[in-house]
Amino acid sequence: MIAPAEQALSYTQEQPADAVAIEALLDHAFGPGRFVKSSERVREFALFRPDMSFCAWDGGRLVGSVRMWQVRVGDTPAVFLGPLAVQAAGRKFGVGGELVQMASAAARAAGFPVLLVGDEPYFGRFGYSAAPCRGVVMPGPVDQRRVLALGADKLEGPVRA
């Protein structure tokens, strides 16, 4: 059972010791299909940024995670958000939204725009939009309408290391 956010949930910066629990959560949330997505291609070459990645905990149990990866979009340094995973029971308490806001704020404080592949109705409430991303080229097939950014007027070019 997950407690309401104002009670027992705590949020921490990701630590190396969290990796096993995060992988288990990602396996549960996305299954093996996560490895064929264009976003996974980005994570294969991007630099992991644990300083901008966060976990949500209910006591000692991981209930949510968001990871960030340093990339370039064309010549523009940026960070790539994802995956974002939250146990089903935690979704009604806003765990995912809190994680997105924390990761986005960390990226913006470090001077990076944020890129992701996701649903604009969900991420739009945090300021993400497809408008700056028309010229973004992801590694592999992707629905261009789902390529979103925050903190950039225009991103253009291939996503690369």
Rank of each mutant, 00 (worst) to 15 (best):
I2S: 09
A3H: 12
A3Y: 05
A3N: 09
A5T: 07
E6I: 07
L9S: 07
L9I: 15
S10P: 02
S10R: 13
S10G: 05
Y11P: 09
Q13Y: 08
P16G: 12
P16L: 13
V20W: 09
E23S: 02
L26T: 08
H28P: 00
F30D: 06
G31C: 05
G31D: 00
P32T: 07
R34F: 04
V36T: 15
S38L: 02
S38F: 07
E40K: 14
E40L: 04
V42T: 08
E44Y: 01
E44M: 05
A46T: 03
L47Y: 06
R49Y: 12
R49V: 15
R49I: 13
M52W: 15
M52T: 14
F54P: 11
C55R: 11
A56C: 11
W57Y: 14
W57I: 10
D58F: 05
G60P: 01
G60K: 11
R61F: 01
V63N: 12
G64M: 03
V66G: 03
M68V: 13
M68Q: 15
R72M: 03
R72H: 12
R72W: 10
V73L: 05
G74N: 13
T76H: 10
V79S: 01
L81M: 13
G82H: 09
G82V: 09
A85K: 13
A85I: 14
A85L: 09
V86N: 03
A89E: 08
A89H: 00
R91H: 01
F93K: 00
V95E: 05
V95R: 00
G96M: 11
G97N: 07
V100F: 14
M102Y: 10
S104E: 01
S104A: 15
S104I: 00
A106F: 11
A109Y: 04
A110K: 10
F112T: 06
L116N: 06
L116C: 14
D119T: 00
D119P: 00
E120V: 06
E120G: 01
E120S: 03
G124I: 06
G124R: 07
R125T: 14
F126M: 06
Y128E: 10
Y128M: 10
Y128G: 08
Y128A: 10
Y128T: 14
S129Y: 04
S129W: 04
A130K: 11
A130T: 12
A130I: 02
A130C: 08
A131M: 05
P132Y: 11
R134V: 04
V137M: 13
M138A: 12
P139C: 10
P141A: 14
V142F: 08
R145Q: 14
A152C: 05
A152R: 09
E156Y: 02
E156I: 01
R160Y: 01
R160M: 00
A161C: 03
